[in-house]
């Protein structure tokens, strides 16, 4: 008998966690938390993040949350040690951030409440290095 002969059944019956539409009911309350964070952003310019991996959310909850927040106008893809996507939702100031590793697995997942996510901004030191590079390009022209 080989391994293939052993039948593996995953029952995607009602309320199975493998079922795509199994909601735990934990997602809707997050909207209230987000609203509070957005109020703080507007009032004090304070940005914050919610760590989605730390919350008991099913894949369906995440899908629901993502669909409910909708898609905004801007989406940033970061290519570094695996892909990261930072996408604005239909609520400006709320960003859906997924970090993948090189194998494509999601390593961390955040909802970031900010005008611009921290990761998108160029660091002044990197800008200085870039300027040196630019100057060397200009020097090469002359």
């Amino acid at each position: 008998m080989s391994l293939e002969d052993i039948r593996v059944v995953v029952d995607a019956g009602e309320s199975s966690p493998y079922r795509a539409d199994a909601l735990s009911g934990n997602a809707p309350v997050l909207l209230h938390e987000l609203a509070e964070h957005v109020r703080q952003l507007v009032a004090a310019g304070e940005s914050t993040a919610i760590d989605l991996n730390a919350l008991p959310l099913t894949p369906a909850d995440l899908d629901w949350l993502k669909a409910t927040l909708g898609e905004g106008e801007i989406s940033v893809t970061l290519h570094s040690d695996g892909e990261s996507t930072l996408a604005e939702t239909a609520c400006p100031g709320i960003w859906w951030v997924n970090h993948h590793n090189e194998q494509g697995h999601v390593v961390s997942r955040f909802i970031e409440v900010a005008f611009v996510p921290e990761l998108v901004k160029a660091h002044p030191e990197d800008v200085k290095t870039g300027l040196e590079h630019l100057e060397s390009l200009i020097f090469d022209l002359s």
């Binding site: 970061l78 570094s80 040690d81 970090h99 390593v107 921290e118 990761l119 660091h123």
Partner: peptide, 10 residues
């Protein structure tokens, strides 16, 4: 730097 930031965030 961004890779490192990403790692530290995780």
């Amino acid at each position: 730097r961004r890779t490192f930031f990403k790692y530290c965030a995780t």
